[in-house]
Design a protein around this nucleic acid. Structure first.
Length: 119
DNA sequence: AACTTGACGAGGG
DNA sequence: CCCCTCGCCAAGT
């Protein structure tokens, strides 16, 4: 399995393309969904080579922060793109995953207690 | 084949 | 909240 294999990379991109604007997913979350020997690191490795119009900005780390701060990309470019989609970041550059994290159909968390929302 | 890096994650101080 | 350590998998030298 090689990150350059189209099938390998496509599985990651397929999920990322499914993230709607204003929502985010974490590297580790994507790795868990793919299962097959993927880890947060490999997903990140695949993501840094995203080119197919994949909304890479919607993939952040498990802390709710952008991992692109000190890298090739200008500081807060990713955060700025997400803010344009409505994601609110704290002064420390962190967003609330409990609010913005996207869960693909079939991989939703256990929490179904929305019945208590409005009594 | 060995060693280092890297858009990561969890745990501890 | 910041910093460090260790585990993880693939790529580049």
């Amino acid at each position: 399995m090689n990150v350059n294999d189209k099938t390998y990379r496509e599985r990651v991109f397929e999920i990322v393309r499914g993230i709607p604007a204003g929502k985010v997913m974490t590297y580790g979350q994507i790795a868990i969904i793919l299962g097959e020997g993927y880890t947060a690191r490999t997903v990140g490795y695949v993501m840094h080579g995203a080119e197919d119009g994949v909304p890479w900005q919607r993939v952040i780390n498990s802390q709710g922060k952008c991992s692109t701060d000190k890298l090739t990309l200008p500081h807060s470019l990713q955060q700025g793109m997400l803010e344009s989609e409505g994601v609110i970041f704290s002064a420390a550059g962190k967003c609330d995953l409990g609010v913005y994290q996207w869960h693909p159909a079939g991989f939703e968390p256990e929490s179904d207690d929305q019945t208590t929302l409005f009594g």
